[in-house]
Design a binder for these strands. Sequence first.
DNA 1: AAAAAAC
Length: 521
Amino acid sequence: MSFESLGLSAPVLQAVADKGYTEPTPIQEKAIPIVLMGRDVLGCAQTGTGKTASFVLPMIDILAEGRAKSRMPRTLILEPTRELAAQVAENFEIYGKNHKLNMALLIGGVSFPDQERALERGADVLIATPGRLLDHVERGGILLNDVKILVIDEADRMLDMGFIPDVERIVGLLSPMRQTLFFSATMPPEIRRLADRFLSNPKEVTVSPPASAGTNIVQGLAIVPEDEKREALRGLIKSQDVKNAIVFCNRKRDVVTLLGSLKKHGFNAGALHGDMSQPARMETLERFKQGEIQILVASDVAARGLDIVDMSHVFNFDVPFSPEDYVHRIGRTGRAGKTGHSFTLASPSEGDLVQAIEKLIGTTIPRIEVAGLVTTDFEASDGRRRGRGRGRGGRSGDKPRGPRREAKEPREHHERKPRPPAEPHAEARAELHEPREHASRERAPREQAPREQRPREHKPREHAPREHGPREHRAEQHRPQRERKSDHRPERRERRHEGRDEPAPVGLGDHVPAFLARSSR
DNA sequence: AAAAAAC
């Protein structure tokens, strides 16, 4: 499978080739043709699967026709964090370099006037975090009713972060005559309900992450007392061939203290968390990407989606509160077919959290020892240590390590239950609920001819479209979208008569690894 | 429990 067969235009393909990509990822292969058809997409995929390009590339092509009016953006992409938003903007720059696209990036923490100017110029692409976007809306700087394509990215994370009311408000300002692309790493019922409301007759695309909890990530876990974690981390870093690494902390203030400690010990480190000023966040991230900073100490602002190629190591200075976050954190390494390394420092009281993670990923994280340090075992929930007591060395002046938890009621989940069989993490796979041939039968004329049969060459948009040139197709590509809403119902009925007893399945069925499908805890 | 996001 090559990019050429997906129906993208020559200038976009050129930009992809220049970037060095030759083969689409499963989600790109499945989603790009659907987006080009003008249909809604419900994508179950997390970053690292090539999800961003799966909507950026076709959007560039669709946007090649026409231009935006002042304050009336033609497309809107919602992202949960500022960094993700900036990353999507970068993607548009990279792949849209052969097109003249006006872009506006509306995120908090940076100055308003620049963003206002970009809006006034007329934004073909508007990329935003919800808060700042609504701020502009309230000031009357944007009219959203001309938005033709809406992308809601990382929907589950938006839910976690309490953005859904904002998102609903924003979607309420859009015309129902739009194409919607909705992406989420997980599909809990709440997200599913949202998708049902925002999408119209969507195609579902499901992709399991390329390294769900790490077939190509070497994992390790060391149990060390809380006050020895910094020393343990230094030992770990030195024992490893660390090219570049993220160290995750649960709290922002720990990010700050750990950064100080690492710097004091001569490490080349920087910090990233949400209390930093936005310019500082961007600068640190850029320097990390450039390799000027070797170790990035970060809060979970960096846990999901950040696309940093070739990161050799992820360290968890703390066990993440939610097991899903563990998967996201370690997923920052082991990308693009490389082997990644992930090491977690757990304090003796964090046994419950570790157990939850191991249950989620279906394997036990190998316990490791840090040279020269005492490693202990987890406390049992009744306050006693489990297993064989302490490792070599012993500690002099053994001071009490914080309050031990009092014995509560016996907790059933501490009994070792047989673990569910591990999910096959083999290859990233993508499944469409309906085979594509099916799609082409049920919908004419837009879906009739595969786009690869009508090659187009790029023309700058100042040139008048040719009467019967390939560009005409593109214009046509947009028109049926209007028809879609009106013939939505009849189409559904037809489908039932086509031998289907039920409408297209909404559930993801077996295509989602169990641990991803779970909502939370 | 923490973090994220608007001023």
